[in-house]
Design a protein around this nucleic acid. Structure first.
Lengths: 350, 350
DNA sequence: TTGTAAGCGTTATCAC
DNA sequence: GTGATAACGCTTACAA
């Protein structure tokens, strides 16, 4: 390895000044083609690479995005969703010359402490937040402290959704569940149940709306029956199973023709109860849904990552944009896609 | 927010020189308590935080570890294992003042290109590699180029395992499967089958050895029957199901009492075939195993992360160590733990 | 114990 | 178009 060559070394090797080397790198058009070539050649020969920290110090830009790793969940199977987003985001960020720095935090307050730490130390130029929730204190702090950030997930407060300072990208869960429900209706199902999270979670309520809309549009079930076709549970396979049993008990003589869920975990729980007797559609299209063969609504994470990045850097790419100059739309709502599968693999009975 | 204060600002505020401020931060014992306190006070008042890039430039240390995000797998459910490791690693690294930088790569060659990019730019001081495999070109490159690194996973080449330049931490999969098999034997099972990956994968062969050892130690099944109690398949739920069927077909009249697998994906596949008729034990203790309630061998990822970090930084913590001065054991083999569960939730038949 | 001076590798400013 | 000079914020000799 030996010491890495510096601009000076390249300059000497090419017979030019340090400055010219820098220009070749950062403003090639200012440099005469012949010289440029000579410098490029020296760069290649010496294997020169700019020293990232030096450049960051000088330019006062870290070209680094901070992102918190979600806490690991116990009873869910959807951990891989952030994983996939992260993968896609890292890959795309890399192509724009941005690095992704990880951190962890115990709860929102700790996360805010981390924001402060990382931004004060000029370690990052901006943040990506995931799992936004109702009355999220994190975005407030970030706005107040002039930090660039984009959230994967809408702000769920009353007016927050149109706050020009809050850039966000989200998946249109409502349309996802509308599509899932419509698909089942089209396949002949009438009484389609909804299995979701307790209300108040924003995301969950939104998805529930999609089911409601589709059910009302179809008009196959009287409005008065709709409440009985819903059950809520915390996310998790066991909770899903439990809620499914409640649903069956409450369904009355007509029963249930199909189920749509707000997560693959709930769907899997439901499936452990109903098996392949009735179709169950999940949400997130996790590997588990794919493996077991049940339908699920897929979030287009590549598109989400691209949107987040675009909002963060400005459409033209490059470095993280300053606060001002935001002229593009400030949020993106991307449509999910229903992945239809035959039905779950059968786990043979005892 | 305004500009961040610098050492000079703190020095002025405390009525000392820049140098003294730096000493308070990096060598407090050199500074008289009274002055130290005055400086600390000014730091607190101004909210001073050292500029990370400036410090890194000066010290020629990035205090950053690079880690590649595994490619996302299609048919597997174990993606979350790296996820959990990453979480634990990031958290522990953070406590030692190390940052974790992410990158992605398409295959080993591309990953090596990334190594070069990140190390040439002095963006990272070292790497953590996951998913090592037979004849892994990555470690060779890293050694050759004097880069610090630790692998999660043993080197599987002939002599590589004792290569003093290759630090590694791994989970003792052999003992994991030995325990799993022993547990089943203890519970009364005799003919225990092994469902694993095609030989050559190091990790898989090692785990298979554990099963073999336990079976031979028990002596309940004649040696000549053992080959018939094995099936191999690529990792994945559907592959696992298929292999399980082959296993049943080949088992002969005595059948199979239980199955141990090299992954939760294979185990789930097997379960879709045998249901709860016979016990199946997986590997990785993924959320899916927990949710569905089948037993699995858990990798102690916190311990692995701690080991990796320790090897990377030296037992005393702090910064990433230089190449020389490695006196501690150069690898850690940590024992996994069998998590016993009642049996899989039943997916009702059609 | 504290202060002075130099330099880490880069880029921005301004002469030439 | 190219080159000297300064500065980004920090740490580390070395001198006081």
């Amino acid at each position: 390895m030996g010491a890495q060559p510096t601009v000076s070394d390249v300059a000497d090797a090419a017979g030019v000044s340090r400055q010219t080397v820098s220009n070749v790198l950062n403003a090639p058009e200012l440099v005469r083609p012949a010289t440029r070539e000579r410098v490029q050649d020296a760069i290649g020969r010496l294997g020169y690479r700019p020293h990232a920290s030096a450049r960051r110090l000088r330019t006062q830009k870290s070209s680094t995005i901070g992102i918190r790793l979600d806490p690991i969940t116990q009873d869910g199977i959807s951990g891989s969703i952030l994983d996939r987003f992260l993968h896609s985001f890292t890959e795309q960020a890399d192509r724009k010359g941005l690095r992704v720095l990880l951190f962890t935090a115990d709860g929102p307050d700790d996360e805010i402490a981390q924001f402060r730490r990382l931004s004060d130390a000029a370690d990052v130029d901006g943040f990506v937040l995931t799992s936004t929730f109702h009355g999220d204190p994190r975005t407030e702090w970030l706005i107040e402290h002039g930090q660039s950030f984009v959230t994967f997930g809408r702000p769920w407060g009353i007016d927050d959704m149109t706050d020009p300072q809050h850039l966000w990208v989200d998946v249109d869960g409502r349309s996802g569940l509308r599509d899932a429900t419509a698909h089942l209706l089209h396949a002949g199902a009438r009484r389609i149940a909804f299995l979701g999270w307790p209300s108040g979670s924003g995301t969950g309520d939104d998805r529930r709306e999609g089911w409601l809309e589709a059910m009302r549009a179809a008009g196959q079930v009287p409005e008065s029956d709709l409440p009985g076709l819903q059950a809520v549970a915390e996310d998790g396979v066991t909770f899903g199973a439990e809620a499914m049993r409640r649903l069956q008990a409450a369904a009355g003589p007509d029963g249930i023709d199909a189920v749509v869920c707000t997560s693959d975990s709930l769907a899997l729980g439901a499936l452990t109860v109903v098996g392949s007797r009735i179709p169950v559609i999940g949400y997130d299209n996790t590997p588990v849904a794919a493996s077991l063969g049940y339908s699920s609504v897929e979030q287009p994470l590549d598109a989400v990552a691209a949107g987040v990045l675009e909002l963060l850097t400005g459409a033209h790419g490059g470095r993280v944009r300053a606060d001002d100059g935001v002229t593009d739309p400030r949020h993106r709502l991307v449509a999910p896609r229903l992945v239809v599968r035959g039905g779950p693999a059968l786990i043979a009975p005892r």
